[in-house]
Amino acid sequence: MSSAVFQLSDIRRSYYVGNEWVHAINGLDLTIPDGQFLAVIGSSGSGKSTLMHILGFMDTPTEGKMEFEGSDVTGIGRRSRAHLRANRIGFVFQSFNLLPRLSVMDNVLLPLFYGRSGMSRADRRAAGMAALERVDLQHRWQHTPNQLSGGERQRVAIARALINSPRLILADEPTGNLDSRNREKIMDLFVKLVGEGITLVVVTHDDAVAAYAHRRIRMQDGRIVEDDAA
């Protein structure tokens, strides 16, 4: 087995709501190997979104140890987390979340701005074009998001996730807002990207989407209850 992108040991994430503790993640161990396509399934409230936020450095576990690319990232600061989000991880959301006022190209280039890439304008454009070519939308770079179909918007969002050449892409219900034809297109694209060496984690409750993955884990009450790699 190749080296691990993520290694989580006994992770807990609890919230104090009302006057009791809610344990969204309750003792979770997970190793995500390099290049794996992992599907996280589970009903709502099972903790899969919280896991996604923790993997995406948007949330921090209250307990447990967390390693990313071999180094301990348990309890790193907000700045470092923002840096990792901008440079090492790509996000794909259910509702695409493109900025409506920016062109397709500017949407794709946005992470470079926050990643402080120091690239020249021409280099950024070239990188943006390359990312759009990978999702086969290079001809739409001047359009705005509302001129695109849902499937195309999601492909732009994937190009945005690819722009920083991330090691890991996190996708939260990426096909939830798409019809079956577009769902297939997006999933084929994901499979192609995994084939190119990207590690992919998809949260879904669509079994058809989960079927594309190398490995499926099912969550319930903040724990992994099923793992077909085990």
Partner: peptide, 15 residues
Amino acid sequence: REIGVRKAIGARSHD
């Protein structure tokens, strides 16, 4: 929501 997106893709608070 836009602020959320910007932060998710790496914007820091001061950005």
